[in-house]
Amino acid sequence: MIATLEYVEILDKSEMLGKMVLKSEVYEAYRDAKLALYNDDEANRLIKDFNNVKDLYEDVQRFGRYHPDYSEIMKLVRTKKRAMDLNDKVAAYKIAERSFQGLLDEISQYIALSVSDHIKVPKDGAALTDSGCGCGSGGSCGCKAS
């Protein structure tokens, strides 16, 4: 067990690291892009349109190619997604989000490797995906989530 003073020191340093992240240029760019996205009516309309079509897409996926509107809905989904992705605010937000995730991944890797070379660290936002494996290695370790 970690001694009390060591525990307090770790908490203090982790809080300081969190504050440094919140003051970073990468986070500020992410925050600004997010704010610009949520304040843009056109971007919000495109996102809403895509989400509405995505519900239809999920219904089509239950039946696959046998769904009577399969081709039409698949084309519609691609069209709406493309329109959404080509919006300047959406594109800027996605770029800023990827950069911020990269910073967080880099920090996680640095911390993990300072403890041991054997600690597995998710990369490229893999912590946000559900691999079904509890260790974050993408299932390559062979463990199974129960």
Rank of each mutant, 00 (worst) to 15 (best):
C135A: 02
D69F: 02
D117M: 00
A91T: 02
K94F: 14
D85I: 08
M16Q: 11
R31C: 07
G18Y: 07
Y27K: 14
M74H: 04
K54V: 02
D55K: 14
K120Q: 06
E106S: 15
Q101L: 13
L11Q: 05
D59A: 03
L76S: 04
F100V: 10
V53Q: 02
G138A: 10
Y70S: 03
G142E: 04
D130A: 12
Y57P: 00
M74F: 02
Y27L: 13
D41H: 08
L11C: 05
V53E: 03
A127Q: 08
A33F: 06
D32N: 14
S14N: 09
S137P: 06
Y27G: 14
V21I: 15
M16I: 08
A145Q: 13
A96W: 04
Q109D: 12
L11Y: 01
G138W: 11
N52A: 15
S14P: 00
K81R: 14
G125M: 06
K23D: 14
A33M: 07
N39D: 12
L113G: 00
V21W: 03
E15R: 07
V60A: 00
M84K: 13
L103K: 10
N51T: 14
Q61F: 00
G18M: 08
A126H: 11
C141I: 14
R98T: 12
G136W: 08
I2W: 13
A3S: 11
L113R: 07
M74V: 09
M1R: 12
Y93L: 10
C143G: 11
K94Y: 14
E28C: 06
K19W: 08
D41P: 08
K23F: 09
I73T: 03
I111E: 01
Y70P: 02
N39G: 15
S146T: 01
D59T: 02
I119E: 01
H118C: 00
M16R: 10
L22F: 11
T79R: 15
L103H: 10
L11S: 05
